[in-house]
Nucleic acid binder design. Structure first.
Lengths: 131, 131
DNA sequence: ATTGAAAATGAAAATCGTTTTCAAATTGGA
DNA sequence: TCCAATTTGAAAACGATTTTCATTTTCAAT
């Protein structure tokens, strides 16, 4: 019972994802892939991304517009990582803070809830938009 | 320059929303509205809900399935309110904790980011699913 | 009470992101 | 080489939401 075949499409997709600085959407990824290979199908990209999420190689988080953003799990595996999303301008900022660990411990101890810190997105207003 | 007319549809929608215990989706709201008035249109419900979000009467948060959930802003206006979403079973738990205020102050002071606490959703695993 | 312009309605069509279907092509072990 | 399992991509289906547009409703001015 084989469960995965190596293909040039998957290799290209994974290589392209590794080059992503931060997070990306399927739309963005597909646009970048198309520069290298105009024949690759959007369906294939969706399938590959979903597969990587299942493997925990990619982490998925849903933005306020309802569109999922993905990040290489290894790039944000360390604890304390979260996203600050400005509801006014849409800017997404990445942070790494100890305070998040405090919060995680609180939820674990008091609410019996194990926080997955890779997926925290906090909404609010950024500096520029407050002025 | 008038910018709002009172209509029986809006009144029904707002009355129905007030009866919601916690958060709801447009689909759920529409189903409940239909029990009282089979002629009301889904488009009208979307318009009313969007209007209330613009007025800050409703607060909108996007779940991991990409579908927005809404809550009466007055019901979660006090600080420290957030949602714990289990990624395994999908259960949504509401919490009110001081630790969130600590976190908000940290982001305000160190990252110049004003957290909107009505919209925090934290993903993880609930007690039952961890066992 | 009548008028009329602004606003709201609902059905249908359009849109957007994503998933499913399916026939054809590819993979890799026998 | 052969062949079954897997993958592919185009097209169709899908579900949630928005837009369009002709019709109806609201409400202030008459």
């Amino acid at each position: 019972m084989r469960d995965s075949y190596k293909t040039k499409q998957k290799e290209l997709i994974e290589r392209c994802i590794k080059e992503c600085e931060r997070e990306f959407t399927v739309k963005e990824l597909f646009a970048r892939l198309n520069k290298e290979d105009q024949t690759i199908g959007l369906t294939t990209v969706y399938r590959a991304v979903n597969g990587l999420v299942k493997n925990h190689a990619l982490s998925k988080s849903v933005e306020s517009d309802g569109v999922p953003h993905y990040r290489l799990a290894e790039k944000c595996e360390h604890s304390g990582h979260c996203l600050l999303k400005c509801e006014s301008c849409g800017k997404l900022t990445h942070t790494d803070c100890d305070e998040l660990n405090v919060l995680s411990k609180h939820f674990a101890n008091k609410h019996h809830f194990e926080v997955d810190q890779k997926d925290i997105t906090i909404y609010g207003t950024c500096e520029e938009c407050r002025m």
